[in-house]
Write a protein that binds this DNA or RNA. Structure first.
Lengths: 210, 210
DNA sequence: GTCTATAAAGGGATAGAC
DNA sequence: GTCTATCCCTTTATAGAC
């Protein structure tokens, strides 16, 4: 019987390999590598365990495939916005808006990435590839220029980025605690995130006022 | 042979039970419940597996014991400061300072708690016990009073807390990524956190200016 | 490519001697 | 209380028929 915990991925227009990948993505993202079971993935994909090994040889290889796909899909979007040649305030607004939208649709991604960061930091860093991103250099330059022009206070890019990402991501990690603390329903939490699309840019920009 | 990954806990003045708990704490915090191995805990404690079961019966019970201890040690400190009857700015500074100090000494705690939040949200929430904390009520009242007096902008307590906690905790979760992005050594990261003790209260308070 | 059956390994838990 | 040896269930992985 099909496990109803996961959204239906039984569409017949998907190849077996695609079905497995979709199922594995859901299970791995929610359970992590150590917590996931091959049987559960097979059930979610509506095939038997043997097929998993036929297509991906081992659990580790399947996970690596999924992880690289997920990280490859999300990581590039993170920094590209901040590398654009547009006013700082516009980019911050755009970044927060797009980022919170993405996380609302994929709320388990942050924990998935951060858990893997614990076990294989070098792999995550390599795949994210942010070190070699030119976006950071441009942001760095922009922060310096604006500060010298007296438009904003001087701030280290590391703090700027840490603030921006922390404020955007962390509420999704702590969602159950926040919901308990402030008696939020799921709808309340969605509204809460919507409010943060406005609030976070305000917070970031107001702190940069000279 | 003793696993050198973990700090030495072989002091002979510790009882076997205490040695097990210390070892288990280190392994569980780093590997999580599903990822931890009883053999690894036994090795770290320099005893054999049978003793783990003799003292704690099962892996789940051992984990629960450790988890409750860890959470019981840290959770109460989180909100108590904010419940005190002191000026908002003083409390924010004090909170951030003490919180970052604690996290610097125990950098794996956030991931440990958040990972467990995925598998057993109700247990974490119950143990944290923040719902019934009067500290939140007092903070709520203080934010309202100050806003009505025109001293600060009006802000929902949920956003205030989310901002404060996000800015404080998240850098520890993303430490390897931040270090890679900004080429920080471990010493650099410590300095980075020191800077945030000043920066975060500034950020929070400046955003509250009317 | 897909299935059933089964091997092989891993790991939690226990028995029983000391 | 502490150890060795071992049980046995779970889970990964493979063999082989179709």
């Amino acid at each position: 019987m099909v496990n109803s915990l996961y959204i239906c991925i039984m569409e017949r227009d998907l190849s077996t390999e695609e079905r497995i990948k979709e199922a594995a993505k859901q299970v791995f993202i929610i359970k992590g590598l150590a917590g996931a079971r091959m049987q559960e993935i097979a059930d979610a994909a509506n095939i038997n365990k043997a097929m998993l090994h036929y297509y991906f040889r081992s659990k580790d290889q399947l996970f690596k495939k999924i992880f690289d796909e997920v990280i490859g899909e999300f990581a590039p979007k993170i920094l590209s916005i901040l590398g654009e040649k547009r006013p700082l305030e516009v980019k911050v607004k755009d970044f927060v808006h797009q980022y919170l939208d993405m996380l609302s649709k994929n709320p388990f991604i942050p924990l998935f990435l951060i858990s893997e960061l614990r076990d294989q930091p070098e792999h995550v860093i390599e795949k994210v590839g942010i070190k070699r991103s030119g976006a950071l250099d441009h942001l760095d330059q922009q922060l310096k220029t604006e500060a010298q022009a007296g438009n904003i206070r001087s701030i280290a890019p590391a703090h700027f980025m840490a603030n921006l990402i922390s404020l955007s991501i962390f509420p999704f990690l702590a969602k159950p605690i926040l919901q308990s603390m402030f008696q939020m329903s799921d709808e309340d939490f969605s509204s809460f995130i919507e409010e943060r699309k406005v609030l976070i840019p305000q917070l970031i920009m107001s702190s940069l006022k000279p």
